[in-house]
Amino acid sequence: MSTAGPRPRRATIRDVALEAGVSRGTVSRVLNGEPYVSAQAREAIERAVARVGYVPNSAARNLATRRSQAIGFIVHEPHELFLEDPNIGAILLGANRVLSGSDHQMVSLVIDSERDSRRVARYLSGGFVDGAVVVSARQDDTLLTTIARLSIPATLVGRPPATSRVPWVGIDNKGAARAITEHLVGTGRRRVGMIAAALDRDSGADRLAGFRDALGPAFDRRLVVENQLYEYTAGRTGMIELLEREPEVDGVFAASDAIAAGALDALRAAGRRVPEDVGVVGFDDSSWALRCQPLLTTVHQPARQLGEAAAASVLAQLRGTATDEPAGGLLETHVVVREST
């Protein structure tokens, strides 16, 4: 037999009105932030709200406005990378800061498989979120097709495929990769390789293109090892393979800081000194760069600001204040020189 008592009754607008001695319409105008309420009545209502413990029924309000007050934060990466990648975390925190400041809830959705893609598509179709920030969209990503079909306000972090008209914010991955490679070559390196990753999305493909441009005629396709993800394991195994292909390699551009950390460990195990024997550079300026030994020369990208800009873009679309043209916006990057070069 249950010993639980009856659930306490939820305070209503009527309770607030009775406590404040005003009409329910006046209470509603104050709660909705509308004008034409005297300062005296407003103060009485605010005191009454505190006394009766009134909490707005957001579910009822959302039903009436057909808004969920929620924004999806969609990451197309394996679950473990979502937890371990500091850049994704920084983008998430930046987006959440802007959304929470506008009284929107952020809902995290991770796509790790085709089944996940179908699940997220159903979720978006159900109207559970008003918009979406999308990280790591792939070329020919079915998620973008779903967003276009549903006309959901959305912004990508990263440059979208050429056929997509979804607004986006990002960085010049190609230019930044060219700059960091030029720095590496400028330290006197002559046999320079790259541990590339994520070539099925704009960031990975553009970083490889920037590396190729910087080397020009010295570019050797044999000295590029490809991996699927920006992860530590890819750096360790990629460095081992690169040393097998070219034992005399004396410079390495790792496509992310996590990859660079794995490469440094592989070089240490092989008895190669950094930077005396091999110079190593990364990309991101994440927490990985400061955990490496030696400290990592890398490209700083403003991950938190990318999240903030993407969230602000989605909110602007919801308010109807976004520009008609879905042009992308580029945030600045710069090379951070440390001990690995």
Rank of each mutant, 00 (worst) to 15 (best):
Q301F: 07
I71E: 06
L229F: 08
A312Q: 06
S2N: 01
R159F: 03
I71M: 05
D284C: 05
L267P: 08
F219D: 13
A90Q: 12
F283C: 01
D213K: 06
L229T: 02
T26F: 08
V157N: 01
G320T: 12
L208Y: 15
I147L: 14
A44T: 04
S151A: 11
L31T: 07
S102Y: 00
I152L: 06
R66K: 13
T233W: 06
A4G: 10
R118Y: 10
A162F: 05
L295I: 11
A162I: 07
I180D: 08
G158R: 11
I74P: 14
V278E: 07
N32V: 02
R115F: 11
E231C: 15
V55E: 08
Q293W: 05
T297K: 01
R119E: 06
L31Y: 01
D140K: 13
V133M: 03
G271R: 07
D116V: 07
L223H: 09
P217I: 10
H300R: 09
P326Q: 05
A255D: 14
S68T: 11
E248G: 05
P302K: 09
D15F: 14
G271F: 15
G72Y: 05
R29E: 01
S164Q: 03
R122H: 02
L264K: 02
E248T: 06
G193N: 02
T26P: 15
R115A: 11
L223M: 04
A39W: 00
R10L: 13
A48F: 05
L199E: 08
L124T: 09
V166T: 11
P326A: 12
G175C: 12
R273T: 13
H334S: 11
L229D: 09
R273V: 08
K174I: 04
G101R: 00
L150D: 06
L199T: 00
Q317C: 10
F283H: 01
A95I: 04
T145Q: 15
A260N: 00
L243V: 13
V185T: 12
G89L: 14
D112C: 15
R207E: 12
D202V: 09
G251E: 05
D213V: 07
T181W: 14
A137C: 04
G101I: 02
P78A: 01
R118Q: 14
D250W: 06
V110P: 02
T65K: 14
G262F: 00
H76S: 15
D202M: 07
V335S: 10
A311D: 07
R338K: 09
T333D: 04
V169L: 04
S23F: 11
R42W: 03
T233G: 09
E77H: 07
P153L: 15
D220Q: 08
L331Q: 05
P78L: 10
P167F: 05
S58L: 15
A254D: 10
A60T: 06
P86F: 00
E339T: 00
I74E: 04
